[in-house]
Nucleic acid binder design. Structure first.
Length: 291
DNA sequence: AGCGGGACCTGTGGGC
DNA sequence: TGCCCACAGGTCCCGC
C-alpha cells in the first residue's frame, strides 16, 4: 500500500517530528526488519537526524554526526568501523512510523524503536511498526546503499519525468502494467496507481508495452502524474493499514475509479468493472473505457 | 527473456 | 458461532 503518495505523506508528516533529534538508543525487536547488509544498530547512537526525504517508495532519513564528535574523530581512529549516514526505509505493505512519548511500551507489531533526544532536551521514541513484517530498515553508508541492487537500479521519479520520457521506457512484450510496477522502469508506482493511471489514460493493462503509441505513452505519463499529485494532495490512500506519521488516514481511496471496485459500476460509463489477474496482481479494468 | 509460482507475513472477510 | 481458505500487497528467488 504505501506507494509513492503514501511514502511522500509519511515523509512530510515525519519530518517536523524527527528532524534535529539525536538518536540515543535503538531497540531492535525483530532482527529481520533490518536489511542484512546494513551496519549494526549501535552505530546509530549519537547521530542526529537531518533531512527526511523520499526516493521511489523509500523513505530516507539522513544522519549527521554531532559537531563535537566530528571534531574529535580522526579518520579510521578509535570507535571502530564506519558510521552510517542514512536510514533507508521500505515500508512495503504495512510499515509505519509513529512518534511516541518517552518510555512508551512497544505495540503488538513494533519492530524497531529509535530513542530520540529533541533539541529542547525532551525525549521521544520513534516506533517502526509493521504488521506483516515485510518492511525493511537499511542502516547505510552511501557505499552500502549503492551495493543494494534495488536502490542502484531504481528508475526515474515519475513526477520529475517529462511526458515524452515514458514512451521509450515501455519496451518489450510484457504487459504495460507489469512495466509500471517494475521499479527499474519507474520508481514508486504500485498496484493502486498503476490501475488508476491506466484507467484514466484509457489503456488496457494487459496490452504489450511496446504496442503503445507515443501519444498513448505520453497520456499515460500525464495520467500517472495527475493521479500521484491528486493523491499526495489528499495525503494518500488508506486501504486498511496505511497511516501517516501522525496516525492519520489519507482520503484518496474515495477517488478511485477502478482499484478495489471489481464488479461495481464504472464511474465514467456505468458498465461493469472486471477483475483480472495481470502481472500476478489483482487488476480492475473497465472493458468499455480501456483499450 | 519473461513468465508463473512460492516464500515471506498477518489480518480480514467470505463461504459453509 | 466457528472454522478454513483465499486474498491482499512488494520484492526476491527459483524453475520452466
Amino acid at each position: 500500500m504505501p506507494e509513492l503518495p503514501e511514502v511522500e505523506t509519511v515523509v512530510r508528516t515525519l519530518r517536523p517530528q524527527v528532524q534535529g533529534c539525536r538518536i540515543t538508543a535503538v531497540d531492535v525487536l525483530r532482527e529481520r526488519s533490518l536489511h542484512p547488509s546494513g551496519l549494526p544498530p549501535e552505530t546509530l547512537v549519537g547521530l542526529g537526524i537531518g533531512a527526511v526525504r523520499r526516493r521511489g517508495k523509500l523513505a530516507l532519513l539522513e544522519l549527521e554526526a554531532p559537531a563535537a564528535a566530528c571534531a574529535a574523530a580522526a579518520p579510521d581512529a578509535g570507535q571502530g568501523g564506519p558510521r552510517p549516514s542514512l536510514l533507508a526505509v521500505h515500508l512495503r505493505m504495512t510499515g509505519r512510523f509513529m512518534v511516541h512519548a518517552e518510555g512508551s511500551a512497544p505495540l503488538r507489531h513494533t519492530r524497531i524503536i529509535f530513542h530520540l533526544r529533541r533539541p529542547d532536551g525532551t525525549g521521544a521514541q520513534l516506533f517502526f511498526d509493521d504488521v506483516r513484517a515485510f518492511g525493511l530498515v537499511f542502516i547505510a553508508t552511501p557505499e552500502l546503499l549503492d551495493g543494494w541492487d534495488f536502490w542502484r537500479s531504481l528508475g526515474p521519479e515519475p513526477l520529475e519525468m517529462r511526458p515524452a520520457d515514458l514512451g521509450p521506457r515501455l519496451r518489450g512484450r510484457r504487459a504495460v502494467k507489469a512495466l509500471l510496477l517494475d521499479q527499474t522502469v519507474l520508481a514508486g508506482v504500485g498496484n493502486i496507481y498503476a490501475d488508476e493511471s491506466l484507467f484514466r489514460a484509457g489503456i488496457d493493462p494487459r496490452r504489450p508495452a511496446q504496442s503503445l503509441t507515443a501519444a498513448e505513452a505520453e497520456s499515460l505519463c500525464l495520467a500517472l502524474q495527475d493521479v500521484l499529485r491528486e493523491s499526495i494532495a489528499q495525503c494518500g490512500s488508506s486501504i486498511r493499514d496505511y497511516r501517516d506519521a501522525n496516525g492519520d488516514v489519507g482520503a484518496f481511496q474515495n477517488s478511485f475509479f477502478v482499484y478495489g471496485r471489481g464488479g461495481q459500476a464504472c464511474r465514467r460509463c456505468g458498465g461493469r468493472l472486471e477483475k483480472h489477474r495481470v502481472a500476478g496482481r489483482g487488476t480492475v479494468i473497465c472493458p468499455h473505457c480501456q483499450h
